[in-house]
Each structure stands twice: as C-alpha cells, then as structure tokens.
Amino acid sequence: MGKLKSWGIRGGVSLGKLKSWGIYIGRGVALLFAVSALSFALASASPINPETRYRLSHPGVSQENVTKMREYWGIDEPPVGRYLGWLGGLVRGEWGMSTTYRRPVLDVIGERFSASFALMATAWVLSGLTGFAMGCVMAAARDRWPDRILRRICLFLCSVPTFWIGLVLLAVFSANLGWFPFGLAVPPGVRAESVTLAQRIHHLALPALTLSCLSFANLALHVREKLVDVYQSDYVLYARARGECGAQILFGHGIRNALVPAIIMQFGSVSELFGGSVFAESVFSYPGLGSALAKAGMDASDIPLFLGIVMISAVFIFAGNLTANILTQVIDPRTKGVG
C-alpha cells in the first residue's frame, strides 16, 4: 500500500525530479564552459589572428599602428587572462565588435538569429511532419513497394550532404524552372519595411526544404522502425483479439507509441539542424547565423563574431537536448515516478 501512496505524487513535481533537472542544468553550464574554452583555444591557435590579418590587408603598415592594434586585441596578454576577460564580457553582455560588420557582435547575432530561426523552425516543423507521416506510410505498407521506394529515398537522403541537396534544388527550381529566387532572404534592392511576408516565404522555401532533408529522412526511418515494432507487439495482438479495427489500432496504439520517440528525436536533432544551416545558408547566401559563422570563421577571421555564434549555437543545441529530456519525462508515463 505504501507503493500506492508514492504513486499519488506522480502528477506534481517531486524532489527527485527537481534534483535531476538541477543536474541537467549544471551539466549544461559545464558544457558551455567547455565549449567556450575549447573554441577560444582553437581560435587563439589559428595561424590567422587579427595581427596577421591586419598586416595582410594593410601592407606597409607602420609599427606604431601594429602596436596599437596588438594592444586593442590584447595579443600580448597571457591567453588565460584574455579568455577570462572575454568570458567576463560574455556574462556582462559585452560580446565585442564584429570586424566584418563593424557593429557589436550581439547586434549582428540578434539580427541574423531571427532569419536563421525562421529558417530552422520552418525546416524543423516541415521535417517533423513529413518525416512522421512518411514513417507511418512506410510502416503501413511495410515490405511492399511504397515502403521499398520510400525507404530507398530516405536512405539516399541520409547519405548525401546538405549542400549538395541545396545545389540540386537551386539548379532545378531556380535555374531551370525559375520558380524560386537564387538566394538571399529578401528581394535585392527592396527596402526592409516594404518586404511582404509572401516574398519572405518565397525566399525561405528552398533553404528550408534543403535543411529539412537533413533530419526528415532519418526521422521517417526511425518512425517506421518503431511502428513496425509496435505492430509486432503483444499489445497490438491483444487489441486485435479484443476486436479493434485497423484504424483503432493505428491511432489508438501505433501513433501514440511512435509519437513519443519521434518527438524526442526531433528535439535531439537541433544540433544537426544548426550544423546543416551553415551549409544551407551558404549555398543560398541566406543571411543567417550559419552563413555569418562560415564567413567569420573562414575568410574574415572575425574572431569575436565567430566565438559569439559558437556560444549562441551551443546554448540553442543544449536547450534542444534539454527539451528532449524534459519531454521524455513529461509525455512518457514510463519515466514518471522513477526519478
């Protein structure tokens, strides 16, 4: 009977659950520290630093200017001191100046984040819905031709790189058919205030499609496996023995049992989404975080912006995984009352 009582608190938030969430958050903070230290170390070790960059772009620069520059960047300070200084700035909200855009890093990130967020959210929802639906179709037609064809397609999509998909879409839909623009988030030469929503969607479509290919195939295959398992489970057998029909089994047992892992998987795929957005945005010159990161890291060596985007991405990815973990506890009754 003591057992019965402890079940009673399932609805509320137990001490154990609070503790486990505390552990997640602690782990997240530790992760952010590790990411910041590692990326700072990598950026410092890069052969292209602000000084070499400056010398390259300003041949014959005076020694005086170089000294000023070294001072500005703190190049002569010990690396640990520079790291701590940067970290302190992060906490205070002073993320430094972007050398490419000549504006505060946080402003650049804020602007680009909204563009990226629109892109990633669209791709995420798109891949979630189509992936889940396609997984259901494959499972329902398992081992028959619709399943075989769709499975081939998914396996193919899983194995080709995002930028290649982007290039193909660009070639087909923009170059040949002319249905979609070649890139950017808004039509060139139009003032920001007068850009319509339709125009934004028009520009967003291909990059979002490209990006959604990344996780949708994976999700579809995963949902298919899960549903096939469910269909072979004893509880579906029992449902049939109790006179439930195909639709009742699909909606009452199949989708219900496949949805939990699918949602969790989709939240866990946020990191891939970020990684993919670098390529998708670069291919389509889409002005988001990903293309800014590629630019900051590769040709401009805009270290403040580069580190800032890395940090923001880490926070976002961690939030995705945390959501996946919390959702597991909230929507799957089997994990309730355990923590």
């Binding site: 004893d234 109790r242 006179g243 047992h253 049992n257 939990v260 799957d332 089997r334």
Partner: peptide, 20 residues
C-alpha cells in the same frame, strides 16, 4: 465477435499498451 461474444485473457503481462 472478438471483444464482444468472444473474450480473451492473454498469457503474458506484456499484452497491455504501455501508454494507456
């Protein structure tokens, strides 16, 4: 008749849907 005139008690405890 299944689930109405014909009822079944399965052998193993894995026959219940874990999410219901």
């Amino acid at each position: 008749i299944r689930g109405r005139a014909l009822a079944f008690v399965p052998q193993s405890v894995t026959y219940l849907d874990p999410l219901i």
